[in-house]
Computed example of a mutant assay.
Amino acid sequence: MKHIVKGLLVTSLLITGVTAKDESKVKEVKTVSSVTVAQDIQIFTSANEDGKITPATIEEAFTKAGFFISANRDMNGPFKKQFKETTFDVYNLFTFYSKKETLELVKKYPNIGLFSPMSMSIYTKKGDKKISVSSLTVEAMANILKIPADDTTLVKVGNMVKEALKLAMPQGKFETLPYRVQKLTGEQVSNYKMEMDPDEWEDEKESIQMEFEGTLAPNGFVMAGFNDLNHDFKEAKYEAYDFYDVYSICKLPVIYTVAKVHPEAGAYAPCSLYMYKKKEENMMHLAFPSVYNWISSMDIQDKESLTVLKEAQTRMENILTDLLEE
């Protein structure tokens, strides 16, 4: 019989014991006109009158910087097909990670799959002559992962991202967003655990993943990518896991709706959902970052965006709960 436990990452400062002073360390702080603004998302923008900077040239720069590119998807086609319009000349969702640094991080932080791969949006608004790339700051990722923001390897990854952006867009600069990060109104990460039979875990894994993948489309989700991180680990002679898989999950109405107001939303999309089991343990762990991070990081207030985000959160929670309780 399978047993499921859903664990909530509690964000209350009182419960976690994090003081207001400690929390300030996990935000990137920029000063504009003497006003200090904490930001979770960084947007790098460059003039692009000649159109020479493209998602393809940005991908090339990230590859040169040492990243493995999981996907670089043009979303304008799906936007036009499903919604008959788009507000962008360019809108790509880009997922990537560094195999070497992910291996170093997973040895300390098994939940690193929440951002392996990381996500970005690459966009140009209709009629604009500039191109922008959005991604999460190191501090924001550390806050969600509940790990030190000054972890050497994590900081290195953040620097690699900035170096890749500068390589791709030599005249680019970081923007300062016109809003503040807001207080979370829900859990940061949706966590699940399921006990596995020590002799049947391989069959159980296959069955669960087949059923999970089969439930995505009927619930409006798309599997935008799949990364077998344990394959990378084994190639590097690290064999602590029986499996470590990360799904990149996207729901088109969510990114279409939110991006109209917040094109930087691709810093969270597609969402990474991991499933892993360590050797010598009989527990499978699953988790994904909740939509409440989107709402908090981008100060989302419009009703349409809030509705599609919360609906997606509920649907994914129901999928996993039903799947693991069977």
Rank of each mutant, 00 (worst) to 15 (best):
Ser70Thr: 13
Lys310Gly: 02
Tyr97Ile: 03
Ile122Ser: 07
Asn111Pro: 00
Ile122Lys: 11
Asn318Gly: 04
Asn282Glu: 10
Leu229Ala: 02
Leu286Cys: 09
Leu93Glu: 07
Leu216Pro: 02
Tyr192Lys: 06
Thr137Trp: 07
Glu195Arg: 10
Gly7Ala: 14
Glu175Asn: 13
Tyr247Ser: 06
Gln188Ser: 11
Glu206Leu: 10
Phe212Leu: 14
Asp199Cys: 06
Thr45Asn: 11
Trp201Pro: 00
Ala240Lys: 15
Ile147Asn: 09
Lys6Gly: 04
Lys81Asp: 12
Phe226His: 11
Phe115Tyr: 15
Leu273Gln: 12
Met283Leu: 12
Met196Ile: 10
Gln171Trp: 04
Lys156Thr: 11
Thr95Phe: 09
Pro218Lys: 08
Gly17Trp: 08
Lys277Cys: 02
Ala142Gln: 02
Ile53Ser: 05
Tyr238Val: 15
Lys108Thr: 09
Lys81Ser: 10
Phe243Glu: 00
Pro110Ala: 08
Val308Thr: 07
Leu105Met: 15
Glu206His: 14
Asp40His: 13
Ser24Trp: 02
Ile122Ala: 12
Asn76Val: 08
Glu280Thr: 11
Ile319Val: 07
Ile4Met: 14
Ala47Gln: 14
Phe221Gly: 01
Lys64Thr: 03
Thr152Asn: 13
Glu239Gln: 11
Glu280Asn: 15
Ile255Cys: 13
Lys277Arg: 15
Gln301Asp: 06
Val254Cys: 12
Lys52Gly: 02
Asp245Pro: 00
Lys6Trp: 04
Lys193Glu: 07
Pro198Gln: 08
Ser12Asn: 09
Met1Ala: 12
Pro178Arg: 08
Glu187Val: 05
Tyr241Leu: 01
Val254Lys: 15
Pro110Met: 06
Asp22Cys: 02
Glu304Lys: 15
Tyr192Thr: 01
Pro148Tyr: 07
Leu105Ile: 04
Thr86Tyr: 13
Asp150Lys: 14
Ala265Gln: 06
Phe226Tyr: 14
Val157Trp: 11
Val18Thr: 14
Pro148Val: 03
Val10Pro: 01
Glu163Met: 11
Gly158Asp: 03
Ser272Thr: 11
Pro110Val: 13
Tyr247Asp: 03
Asp228Leu: 03
Tyr292Ala: 01
Gly66Thr: 08
Val133Tyr: 12
Tyr268Thr: 00
Asp22His: 09
Glu85Leu: 03
Val155Cys: 07
Asn111Met: 03
Lys30Met: 03
Lys173Pro: 01
Tyr123Met: 06
Met118Cys: 10
Phe96Cys: 01
Asp22Val: 04
Met194Lys: 13
Lys30His: 04
Lys278Leu: 07
Tyr244Phe: 05
Ile112Thr: 05
Ser297Gln: 13
Glu204Val: 09
Asn318Trp: 02
Glu104His: 09
Pro148Thr: 02
Lys30Leu: 02
Asn159Met: 04
Arg180Ala: 05
Gly220Asp: 03
